[in-house]
């Protein structure tokens, strides 16, 4: 995306979808930005052994 396009995005009110860490959305909300927080965690809570098994077993 060109720099001009990025700047034009920020000329209008920003709408944000935040995935994962809620701290980012809280910061934006405190500045009056509309944020939709997506409740997401890494597969198997980030446990690499279980995540590896899941990738082999498929879901």
């Amino acid at each position: 995306m060109s720099e001009t396009k990025i700047k034009s995005l920020l000329e209008k009110p920003v709408k944000v979808v935040n995935v994962g860490l809620e701290g980012f959305s809280r910061e934006l909300e405190q500045q009056g930005v509309r944020v939709v927080q997506v409740d997401w965690v890494p597969p198997a809570g980030g446990d690499p052994k279980l995540a590896d098994l899941l990738s082999k077993l498929g879901t």
Binding site: P43, L50, G58, T59
Partner: peptide, 10 residues
């Protein structure tokens, strides 16, 4: 209930 989905999603 699929144990794979339970573990994957938490």
């Amino acid at each position: 209930i699929d144990i794979r989905l339970v573990v994957e999603t938490g």
